[in-house]
Design a protein around this nucleic acid. Structure first.
Lengths: 219, 219
DNA sequence: CCCTGTGAAGCAGTTCACAGCG
DNA sequence: CGCTGTGAACTGCTTCACAGGG
């Protein structure tokens, strides 16, 4: 199944995908690397190099078939099948994430919500009843959940990560401002909101000449 | 004022800072690169190299003074002064961000909330009354707002970014799933939640042998 | 003649390994 | 003797530039 794709390229595939979805909705059938680069906010050479890791799908002198390319990227990202998600931590952020439609619409339906507080268990958010964290293993099993989102305070995050791994979740997205240790086999990504602002602070302060670092690479 | 710090290092400074705050609260006075590396989840050589960009602050044979280092990192990130923030877009995500305490506590108080919908204007969230986006320039001016957070749908994001720049905001953090164009002088960082999940999808699907890419670099 | 695909050059970031100072 | 600071090697990503196919 295809070859090894560099991390930096993988991180850009979702952006190409988004651009292609947009293009497809305008009725475009073919797209050149230059046009796609423009939409995705990168340069054309990068687009060609990135796409070349997927395979030789372009047509010289013409460009890429939009629909075909969409399918190829979707396959590479494993979007051909739905990936059920559980959110752990139903504070402000967890609730917002539960309401956020962007996940389900992109193949990551939220099928369970979990919290450690008895006060929250039983409450219904966006049509889903909040369960207790102690039942995590059963819930993950029942819904065949593959991804866990951690939206707890920093102190609880490691224990939650351990519980998610033990329950059989295959990858984790954490919003907790802390370093997490998970087995090598479990892909982990972190988003720390306060950190993002602090990074901006650096560039702002020195009347920055360019984009603030590398969100490009990770989103 | 100090020399040029590489992007990758800047992105890690907030993590070192977090680790140092933790250490300080335990009463530790000195810390070695190895110990700090452990807390921050990186290796010791990286810590030393990173800190060397700030200056020669370590003591050979001993380590780094925790409090002093904290101050140096804070200075580099411009955290010596408070940086007022406005959130644009009061949907689920915007509301959650408004409630999230992690910003204010780290020097980025949220001083204004803005939305385009008349239905939302006037509503009070977390003690702040939502204003209309048309008043953005006046609000930014009045509160000396330096950072704008975009939490609108993708379609509105570019217009909002333009308005923020025009209003005099100095840097932008966007949660909208779209490519934004801003002047080179305005640092911009992007966080796209759905993109993060899609990246995980790739690694998960191939029984990944390591962390899913580079959130490390950006958070 | 246009646009892809890709070797090769260039650059940035990481890691190594050790000299040097306390 | 321990731990920092840093040249130097290395690795991986980006950009260039052009050969080659439609």
């Amino acid at each position: 199944m295809a070859r090894e794709i560099p991390d930096a390229t993988v991180a850009r595939l979702p952006i190409y995908r988004r651009s292609l979805v947009e293009l497809a909705s305008t009725g475009a059938e073919m797209v050149s690397s230059a046009a796609l680069a423009d939409l995705a906010g990168v340069n054309a050479a990068k687009v060609r190099k990135d796409l070349s890791y997927l395979g030789t799908y372009g047509v010289r002198g013409v460009g890429y078939d939009v629909k075909f390319l969409l399918r190829q990227i979707g396959d590479a990202l494993g979007l051909d099948i739905e990936t059920p998600v559980v959110i752990v931590g139903m504070g402000n952020l967890g609730q917002a994430l539960a309401h956020y439609g962007g996940f389900s619409s992109r193949g990551f339906p939220i099928v369970a919500l979990v919290d450690a507080s008895d006060a929250k268990v039983g409450e219904v958010v966006d049509g889903i009843t909040i369960s207790h964290i102690d039942d995590l293993a059963a819930i993950v099993d029942e819904h065949a959940i593959a991804v866990g989102i951690i939206a707890t305070p920093a102190e609880a995050a490691q224990a939650v990560a351990d519980a998610l791994v033990a329950a059989g979740v295959r990858s984790i997205l954490s919003f907790a401002p802390s370093v997490l240790h998970v087995p090598e086999t479990v892909p982990l990504r972190k988003v720390d909101l306060a950190t993002e602002l602090q990074i901006l602070g650096y560039y702002q302060q020195r009347e920055s000449p360019a984009e603030g670092g590398n969100t490009d690479k990770s989103a």
